[in-house]
Protein backbone atom coordinates (compact mmCIF):
# COMPACT_ATOMS: atom_id res chain seq x y z
CA UNK A 1 0.00 0.00 0.00
CA UNK A 2 2.75 2.42 1.03
CA UNK A 3 6.35 1.73 0.23
CA UNK A 4 9.30 3.89 1.14
CA UNK A 5 12.62 2.83 -0.37
CA UNK A 6 15.95 4.30 0.64
CA UNK A 7 14.69 7.82 1.02
CA UNK A 8 17.27 10.50 1.67
CA UNK A 9 16.59 14.11 2.38
CA UNK A 10 18.81 17.01 3.44
CA UNK A 11 18.19 20.67 4.10
CA UNK A 12 21.44 22.25 3.04
CA UNK A 13 24.14 20.51 5.05
CA UNK A 14 21.65 19.14 7.54
CA UNK A 15 21.03 15.49 6.58
CA UNK A 16 17.57 14.83 7.99
CA UNK A 17 16.64 11.46 6.46
CA UNK A 18 19.76 9.35 5.98
CA UNK A 19 18.27 6.22 4.48
CA UNK A 20 14.70 5.39 5.36
CA UNK A 21 12.79 2.38 4.10
CA UNK A 22 9.49 1.12 5.37
CA UNK A 23 6.18 -0.21 4.19
CA UNK A 24 2.63 0.00 5.40
CA UNK A 25 -0.09 -2.50 4.65
CA UNK A 26 -3.73 -1.64 3.96
CA UNK A 27 -5.69 -0.94 7.16
CA UNK A 28 -2.52 -0.92 9.21
CA UNK A 29 -1.96 1.71 11.90
CA UNK A 30 1.72 2.59 12.09
CA UNK A 31 2.97 4.80 14.88
CA UNK A 32 6.19 6.71 14.30
CA UNK A 33 8.14 7.81 17.33
CA UNK A 34 11.44 9.53 17.81
CA UNK A 35 13.13 12.48 19.44
CA UNK A 36 12.55 16.05 18.34
CA UNK A 37 14.44 16.82 15.15
CA UNK A 38 14.85 13.16 14.20
CA UNK A 39 13.00 13.72 10.90
CA UNK A 40 9.49 12.40 11.61
CA UNK A 41 7.68 15.38 10.16
CA UNK A 42 10.01 15.48 7.20
CA UNK A 43 9.26 11.82 6.48
CA UNK A 44 5.49 12.40 6.56
CA UNK A 45 5.82 15.47 4.40
CA UNK A 46 7.81 13.49 1.83
CA UNK A 47 4.98 10.97 1.68
CA UNK A 48 2.53 13.50 0.21
CA UNK A 49 5.14 15.49 -1.64
CA UNK A 50 5.12 18.58 0.58
CA UNK A 51 8.87 18.00 0.64
CA UNK A 52 10.83 16.62 -2.28
CA UNK A 53 13.17 13.72 -1.52
CA UNK A 54 16.80 13.94 -2.63
CA UNK A 55 16.84 10.28 -3.59
CA UNK A 56 14.86 7.12 -3.03
CA UNK A 57 11.32 6.14 -3.97
CA UNK A 58 7.93 6.43 -2.34
CA UNK A 59 4.88 4.58 -3.61
CA UNK A 60 1.33 5.15 -2.46
CA UNK A 61 -1.22 2.77 -3.96
CA UNK A 62 1.29 1.85 -6.67
CA UNK A 63 1.76 5.46 -7.72
CA UNK A 64 5.30 6.69 -7.41
CA UNK A 65 5.07 9.94 -5.48
CA UNK A 66 8.73 10.68 -6.04
CA UNK A 67 8.55 10.39 -9.83
CA UNK A 68 8.85 13.83 -11.33
CA UNK A 69 6.03 13.20 -13.80
CA UNK A 70 3.56 12.29 -11.07
CA UNK A 71 0.84 14.85 -10.54
CA UNK A 72 1.20 15.56 -6.83
CA UNK A 73 -2.25 17.10 -6.64
CA UNK A 74 -3.70 13.70 -7.50
CA UNK A 75 -1.55 11.97 -4.87
CA UNK A 76 -2.52 14.50 -2.23
CA UNK A 77 -6.24 14.00 -2.81
CA UNK A 78 -5.76 10.43 -1.67
CA UNK A 79 -3.48 11.25 1.23
CA UNK A 80 -5.14 12.99 4.13
CA UNK A 81 -2.85 15.00 6.36
CA UNK A 82 -3.49 16.30 9.87
CA UNK A 83 -1.08 18.92 11.19
CA UNK A 84 0.18 19.66 14.67
CA UNK A 85 -1.23 23.19 14.47
CA UNK A 86 -4.50 22.20 12.72
CA UNK A 87 -4.07 24.75 9.89
CA UNK A 88 -7.79 25.19 9.36
CA UNK A 89 -8.51 27.77 6.67
CA UNK A 90 -9.02 30.94 8.68
CA UNK A 91 -11.23 32.62 6.08
CA UNK A 92 -13.70 29.76 5.89
CA UNK A 93 -16.21 28.45 8.41
CA UNK A 94 -16.20 24.87 9.61
CA UNK A 95 -18.50 23.56 6.90
CA UNK A 96 -16.61 25.41 4.15
CA UNK A 97 -13.30 24.12 5.48
CA UNK A 98 -14.57 20.61 4.90
CA UNK A 99 -16.37 21.19 1.60
CA UNK A 100 -13.78 23.29 -0.21
CA UNK A 101 -11.69 20.27 -1.17
CA UNK A 102 -14.59 18.18 -2.52
CA UNK A 103 -16.07 21.18 -4.30
CA UNK A 104 -12.99 22.74 -5.87
CA UNK A 105 -10.71 19.73 -6.22
CA UNK A 106 -13.21 16.93 -6.86
CA UNK A 107 -15.82 19.22 -8.45
CA UNK A 108 -18.62 17.78 -6.37
CA UNK A 109 -21.92 19.66 -6.38
CA UNK A 110 -22.50 21.83 -3.32
CA UNK A 111 -25.39 19.77 -1.99
CA UNK A 112 -23.46 16.53 -2.08
CA UNK A 113 -20.39 18.10 -0.50
CA UNK A 114 -22.47 19.69 2.27
CA UNK A 115 -24.26 16.44 3.01
CA UNK A 116 -21.00 14.54 3.29
CA UNK A 117 -19.49 17.31 5.43
CA UNK A 118 -22.38 17.19 7.87
CA UNK A 119 -22.00 13.43 8.15
CA UNK A 120 -18.30 13.86 8.88
CA UNK A 121 -19.00 16.56 11.44
CA UNK A 122 -21.42 14.20 13.13
CA UNK A 123 -18.71 11.59 13.16
CA UNK A 124 -16.27 13.93 14.93
CA UNK A 125 -19.04 15.23 17.19
CA UNK A 126 -19.21 18.80 15.92
CA UNK A 127 -22.45 19.07 13.95
CA UNK A 128 -23.55 22.14 15.87
CA UNK A 129 -20.36 24.03 14.99
CA UNK A 130 -20.78 23.96 11.21
CA UNK A 131 -21.18 27.74 10.87
CA UNK A 132 -18.46 28.71 13.33
CA UNK A 133 -15.10 30.04 12.22
CA UNK A 134 -11.87 28.30 13.30
CA UNK A 135 -10.93 31.04 15.78
CA UNK A 136 -14.20 30.39 17.61
CA UNK A 137 -13.26 26.76 18.34
CA UNK A 138 -11.05 25.18 20.96
CA UNK A 139 -7.87 23.44 19.86
CA UNK A 140 -9.42 20.00 20.22
CA UNK A 141 -12.44 21.05 18.18
CA UNK A 142 -10.23 22.56 15.48
CA UNK A 143 -8.23 19.38 15.23
CA UNK A 144 -11.39 17.29 14.87
CA UNK A 145 -12.55 19.58 12.06
CA UNK A 146 -9.12 19.19 10.46
CA UNK A 147 -9.57 15.43 10.54
CA UNK A 148 -13.00 15.79 8.96
CA UNK A 149 -11.53 18.06 6.29
CA UNK A 150 -8.97 15.41 5.37
CA UNK A 151 -11.58 12.62 5.41
CA UNK A 152 -13.84 14.57 3.06
CA UNK A 153 -11.43 13.75 0.24
CA UNK A 154 -11.96 9.99 0.84
CA UNK A 155 -8.24 9.38 1.33
CA UNK A 156 -6.70 5.92 1.15
CA UNK A 157 -4.32 6.79 3.97
CA UNK A 158 -4.30 9.36 6.75
CA UNK A 159 -1.06 10.97 7.92
CA UNK A 160 -1.07 12.50 11.39
CA UNK A 161 1.81 14.72 12.48
CA UNK A 162 1.69 15.02 16.28
CA UNK A 163 -2.04 15.76 16.17
CA UNK A 164 -2.35 16.21 19.92
CA UNK A 165 0.89 17.87 20.95
CA UNK A 166 -0.40 21.43 20.58
CA UNK A 167 -3.48 20.65 22.67
CA UNK A 168 -4.29 21.32 26.30
CA UNK A 169 -4.24 17.97 28.13
CA UNK A 170 -8.01 17.88 28.64
CA UNK A 171 -8.56 18.01 24.86
CA UNK A 172 -6.18 15.25 23.87
CA UNK A 173 -8.74 12.55 24.60
CA UNK A 174 -11.43 13.82 22.24
CA UNK A 175 -8.99 13.84 19.31
CA UNK A 176 -7.56 10.42 20.12
CA UNK A 177 -11.13 9.07 20.33
CA UNK A 178 -11.81 10.20 16.79
CA UNK A 179 -8.56 8.61 15.60
CA UNK A 180 -9.31 5.40 17.46
CA UNK A 181 -12.68 5.14 15.71
CA UNK A 182 -11.05 5.76 12.35
CA UNK A 183 -8.63 2.92 12.99
CA UNK A 184 -11.53 0.65 13.94
CA UNK A 185 -13.23 1.46 10.65
CA UNK A 186 -10.15 0.17 8.90
CA UNK A 187 -8.46 3.39 7.83
CA UNK A 188 -4.78 3.04 6.98
CA UNK A 189 -2.97 5.46 9.25
CA UNK A 190 0.54 6.71 9.86
CA UNK A 191 0.69 8.57 13.13
CA UNK A 192 3.58 10.54 14.55
CA UNK A 193 2.86 10.85 18.24
CA UNK A 194 4.31 10.61 21.72
CA UNK A 195 1.05 9.20 23.09
CA UNK A 196 2.19 5.78 24.36
CA UNK A 197 -1.31 4.78 25.42
CA UNK A 198 -2.65 5.39 21.94
CA UNK A 199 0.29 3.60 20.33
CA UNK A 200 -0.20 0.56 22.55
CA UNK A 201 -3.92 0.33 22.11
CA UNK A 202 -4.39 1.31 18.45
CA UNK A 203 -1.00 0.85 16.84
CA UNK A 204 -0.29 -2.33 14.89
CA UNK A 205 3.35 -1.42 14.63
CA UNK A 206 5.69 1.15 16.09
CA UNK A 207 8.58 2.54 14.08
CA UNK A 208 11.27 4.25 16.06
CA UNK A 209 13.27 6.84 14.15
CA UNK A 210 16.45 8.46 15.34
CA UNK A 211 18.87 10.72 13.56
CA UNK A 212 17.31 10.07 10.15
CA UNK A 213 17.30 6.28 10.38
CA UNK A 214 14.76 3.62 11.30
CA UNK A 215 16.35 2.29 14.46
CA UNK A 216 13.81 -0.29 15.48
CA UNK A 217 10.32 -1.42 14.56
CA UNK A 218 7.82 -3.94 15.81
CA UNK A 219 4.52 -4.43 17.64
CA UNK A 220 3.98 -1.81 20.36
CA UNK A 221 4.13 -4.32 23.23
CA UNK A 222 7.54 -5.50 22.14
CA UNK A 223 9.04 -2.11 21.45
CA UNK A 224 7.78 -0.65 24.70
CA UNK A 225 8.57 -3.55 26.99
CA UNK A 226 11.63 -5.07 25.34
CA UNK A 227 13.41 -2.51 23.20
CA UNK A 228 16.56 -4.04 21.74
CA UNK A 229 18.35 -0.84 20.81
CA UNK A 230 20.02 1.49 23.31
CA UNK A 231 18.58 4.59 21.67
CA UNK A 232 15.05 3.20 21.80
CA UNK A 233 15.45 2.36 25.47
CA UNK A 234 16.66 5.84 26.23
CA UNK A 235 13.80 7.45 24.34
CA UNK A 236 11.14 5.26 25.94
CA UNK A 237 12.47 5.90 29.41
CA UNK A 238 12.16 9.62 28.70
CA UNK A 239 8.56 9.63 27.53
CA UNK A 240 7.25 7.20 30.14
Amino acid sequence: MIKVKNVKKSFGKNVVLKDVSLSVKPQEVVVIMGASGSGKSTLLRCLNGLEKVDSGEIYINNVEVTHNKTNLNLVRRETGMVFQHFNLFANLNVLQNITIGPRKVLNEPEEKANKKAMELLKKVGLEEKSTNYPDQLSGGQQQRVAIARALAMDPVVMLFDEPTSALDPEMVGEVLDVMRNLAKEGMTMIVVTHEMGFAREVGDRVIFIDDGLVVEEGPPQEIFTNPTQERTKLFISKIL
Binding site: N73, R76, F83, N87, L88, G101, R149, A150
Partner: peptide, 14 residues
Protein backbone atom coordinates in the same frame (compact mmCIF):
# COMPACT_ATOMS: atom_id res chain seq x y z
CA UNK B 1 0.94 31.52 7.75
CA UNK B 2 2.64 28.87 5.65
CA UNK B 3 0.43 26.24 7.28
CA UNK B 4 -2.53 27.58 5.29
CA UNK B 5 -0.76 26.84 2.01
CA UNK B 6 0.36 23.41 3.17
CA UNK B 7 -3.12 22.48 4.32
CA UNK B 8 -4.52 23.55 0.95
CA UNK B 9 -1.88 21.53 -0.92
CA UNK B 10 -2.52 18.56 1.36
CA UNK B 11 -6.11 18.25 0.11
CA UNK B 12 -4.93 18.41 -3.49
CA UNK B 13 -5.55 22.06 -4.30
CA UNK B 14 -3.44 23.53 -7.07
Amino acid sequence: NKGQTEAAYSIGMT
